[in-house]
Amino acid sequence: MCDQCGCAATPDVVRIADHQGAVSMRPVSARSVEILTGILDANDRAAAHNRAHLGRHGILAVNLMSSPGSGKTSLLEQTIDAVDGRFRIAVIEGDLETENDARRIRAKGVPAVQITTGQTCHLDAQMVHDALHALNLDAIDVLLIENVGNLVCPASFDRGQHANVALLAVTEGDDKPAKYPTMFRGADLIMLSKIDLLDVLGDFSPAKAEAHVRALANPAEIMRTSARRPETLAPWIAWLETRLAHSRAAV
C-alpha cells in the first residue's frame, strides 16, 4: 500500500509525477547491474588524453609531490638555473591560493601557469588539461608539475604525467613513507631534500627512509638533494635528460 495516500498501490508499482504534476501508476522492477569500472575512470581518461597530447609534442611531464614546505619550488628554481637553457622547461603550479610560486618561476624566465584550486587538495587531469591550453607546447621540452603540498590526496589522481617524483625533506620524519604508503609507493623517484641539514638535525636516517620505501615494494632511485647545494642536483638533471631522450624518441 502507498504510504502517502492509502491507495492500493503494491510495492512493485511506483507513483511517478510528470512535469505537469499528473501522477501515473506504472509497474517497476528492481535491477542489479554489475559495473566493475574504476570510480576515477573519467579522470584517468582525461589523464591519458593529456599524456598522449604531451607525447605527440615529445614533452616529458614530471609531477612533483611532497608535504608543504619540503622544497618543491626551491628545487624548481635551482633546476632552471642548473639546466641553463639546455632544454626548455615550463611549470604548472598547484596551490590552494596565490600566484606566489608561479611568480618565482617566471622570475627565472620560464613560463609558469598557476592553478589555484580553492579548497581542492590536489590537481586532477582536467585542471592540468586546462593549464596546458595556456602553454605553447611547441616551445617546451620538460613540463614540471608542482602539485598541491599534501602527501595524501595528490597520490590518488593521475594527471597525465610520465613520472612521479616525491620529495621527503630531512626535516620531516624518515618514517613518512610508512605513514603515507599510497604516495611513496607510486613515486618513480624519491628525493631526500634539504640534505645539507642532515648533520645539523641528526635524527633523520636516510637508510631507514630507504627501508620504508623498499617495504612498499618500490625500487625507485633515492637521491639526496639540496637546493642550496646546486652540485647535488646533477643526478636529477641527468635523470631528466635521460627521460627526455625517451620522450623524444617515442614521438
Partner: peptide, 24 residues
C-alpha cells in the same frame, strides 16, 4: 622479500548499482 607485485589493494571500483526500472 620486497620484490613483490601488488595483486590487490589499490582498487577504487564501482562494483554494482541497484535500481528500479519502469516496465516500459
Amino acid at each position: 622479500s620486497w620484490q613483490v607485485d601488488l595483486r590487490s589493494g589499490a582498487e577504487l571500483l564501482l562494483k554494482r548499482v541497484e535500481m528500479t526500472v519502469e516496465a516500459d
